[in-house]
Design a protein around this nucleic acid. Structure first.
Length: 296
DNA sequence: ACGGATGTTCGCGC
DNA sequence: CGCGCGAACATCCG
């Protein structure tokens, strides 16, 4: 489930379990999502290093070790950090055994995750890190910062939010959730949003990200897997056909950049006209459309 | 069986 | 230069 909130939860788990601990053994199974390093080299290099701190920017995790080494970790689509027990031992592709007897593992069935072994001074120069924008929670904490990051961007706001170079951490789920909460149509060009819309979007983004963070169960790291039957915890994501919680219009699914976007066609307003409906981006036109809907 | 899935990168065409 | 698109990566689930 990793977007910013889930990655932040993973960072907290790693801090709780690993910070200050020395690695006594490392195992990387063939098929673990290692880049730039073989399982054998990593297994040889890691033992003896102490975990000093864990950082996160967007969806990237930095495990800082002593003697100037860093594990750079991206969880991809299905990556999860678990404290190993007999249940998960077999599915973990990368295992760190620590000097307190605990073992921490990376579980990633789809293997879109990435693990890199870098010198600390090389981290900020790594292309994946160098291109990364500021963390989304940092952006939403500063008034006007979201508008500044997206100023002049002509692409649809949904696409712009997913661009990790502009701000880091927003993924497909929270982009839909934030735009719904801010009542902004996902196809609106970012450059068409006014200051009020950016302000709503910034607050909405912070809200939807924080809401998941505040639900952090994370004591044992197993509840965080939320395995088994579960309800969809999102307001519009994955809910096409269900009534909008604000106006009861059916939520629609559309595709943008090859990925699903969920939105309410009635209460998320485009600043420009969607191609098939007429209409203009002016407040007057929007008011007219609202009035027309009410009378129907 | 088919389609879709929380992410990212690459190549291609415009 | 840069945007949009589709494919690719590998696996699981309904």
């Amino acid at each position: 489930m990793p977007e910013l909130p889930e990655v932040e939860i993973a960072a907290r788990l790693l801090r709780r379990w690993c910070e200050g601990r020395r690695v006594v053994r490392a195992t990387a199974l063939p098929g673990s999502p290692l880049r730039d390093v073989t399982p054998r080299v990593l297994a040889k290099a890691l033992p003896g290093h102490t975990v000093e701190s864990i950082d996160r920017v967007g969806k990237q995790l930095f495990i800082h070790l002593d003697r100037g080494k860093v594990i750079l970790l991206h969880l991809g689509m299905t990556g999860k950090i678990v404290r190993l027990d007999p249940v998960h031992q077999q599915s973990a592709r990368l295992v760190l055994e620590l000097d307190d007897g605990a073992a921490v593992g990376l579980v990633d069935p789809r293997r879109f995750g990435r693990v890199r072994w870098l010198d600390a001074h090389a981290v900020s120069l790594h292309p994946e890190i160098a291109k990364l924008g500021p963390d989304a929670l940092e952006v939403t904490a500063t008034r006007g910062a979201l508008a500044a990051r997206l100023a002049g961007v002509k692409s649809p706001i949904k696409i712009a939010l997913l661009d990790q170079r502009r701000l880091a951490g927003v993924g497909n789920i929270y982009a839909s959730e934030a735009l719904f909460r801010a009542r902004i149509h996902p196809r609106t060009p970012a450059s068409a949003l006014d200051a009020a819309a950016f302000s709503r979007l910034s607050r909405a983004l912070e809200h939807v990200l924080r809401r998941t963070l505040d639900e952090d169960p994370g004591d044992d790291g197993l509840t965080y897997l939320h395995e088994g039957a579960e309800v969809n915890p999102f307001v519009v994501y994955g809910r096409s056909g269900e009534p909008c919680p604000r106006c009861h219009t059916a939520i629609e699914r559309m595709v943008q950049g090859g990925r699903s976007t969920f939105h309410c066609p009635a209460c998320q307003v485009a600043a420009i006209a969607p191609s098939r409906k007429g209409g203009a981006a002016t407040p007057r036109a929007r008011a007219k459309r609202r009035a027309r809907r009410k009378s129907e």
